[in-house]
């Protein structure tokens, strides 16, 4: 499972907000340059960023094993023709490039998750969205991160208990109902305790946030993001009829 790995790589030192911005800029550039040359350049950049974040490409592939067949489905279906010669490879080029682009974006996600602690992601959300909505969003996101393993263990126990009692031979609808009911009752029983615990700890609108720093690595990440956005705009502007 994709989780934070402690370390001291460059990727670990860059702030969460800079990394999120860099990801958005990378996505923008990838959408503006979905051609073999553009994607080749972005592949180089992605590999460099993975290396800086101490995330081997092998780990990325292992992480997304389940997703790869679905990515390959679109080009395969698009190249299929109802009639001779049955397969039209030219039609698969566009979808294949798009699928590859998705893979590049997912690789950066893996690097982000492996180098960013939950606390920082939470604070980044609260800082990006101002005021009370931002506080609620940050608080909620932090709770989701922390509740996820708890509920996952609940559900794993349920499925195990079902399997032991031969429940996995029941019809599909029945199995889904059992798993969902167990998950829901556990979640609801945790809700009340969580709400009491939040109030007992004086849940406030104005907590003390972790310190925000802006170092040299952040400046470089910011510069790279701006460069990527400029590169994306370079192609998109003339197409929109603005300038040029």
């Amino acid at each position: 499972m994709l989780t934070y790995e402690p370390g001291d790589s460059v990727g670990h030192r860059v702030g969460a907000r800079s990394k999120l911005l860099l990801q958005a800029a990378f996505a923008g550039a990838a959408f503006a340059h979905t051609d073999p040359v553009g994607l080749a350049a972005l592949t180089g950049l992605a590999l460099a960023l993975l290396a800086l974040a101490a995330t081997p490409p092998r780990a990325v592939f292992a992480e997304y094993r389940g997703v790869l067949p679905f990515l390959a489905a679109a080009p395969a279906i698009e190249s299929f023709r109802l009639g001779a010669p049955w397969v039209d490879p030219a039609a698969a080029v566009g979808p294949a490039l798009a699928a590859y682009r998705t893979l590049l974006l997912l690789a950066l996600v893996a690097a982000y998750v492996r180098t960013t602690p939950v606390r920082e992601s939470e604070a980044a959300v609260a800082r990006l969205v101002p005021g009370k909505p931002g506080r609620l969003l940050g608080l909620g996101v932090g709770l989701v991160f922390r509740l996820l393993p708890v509920l996952q263990a609940d559900l794993a126990r349920t499925r195990e208990a079902m399997a032991v009692r031969l429940g996995d031979r029941r019809p599909l609808r029945e199995r889904i109902r059992l798993v969902a009911t167990a998950g829901l009752t556990r979640a609801l029983s945790r809700t009340d305790r969580l709400a009491v615990a939040l109030r007992a700890r004086c849940l406030s609108w104005n907590p003390t946030p972790p310190e925000a720093t802006f170092g040299r690595a952040d400046a470089l990440a910011l510069l790279l993001a701006v460069a990527l956005l400029a590169w994306a705009a370079w192609d998109v502007w003339p197409a929109l009829g603005v300038g040029g």
Binding site: M1, L2, L20, Q23, A24, A27, F31, E63, Y64, G66, V67, F70, L71, A74, A98, A99, T102, L105, L106, L108, V109, A110, Y112, V113
Partner: peptide, 11 residues
């Protein structure tokens, strides 16, 4: 188990 900003703009 995937995540991230990229997923929102993915397939």
């Amino acid at each position: 188990g995937s995540a991230g900003l990229g997923s929102l703009f993915g397939q």
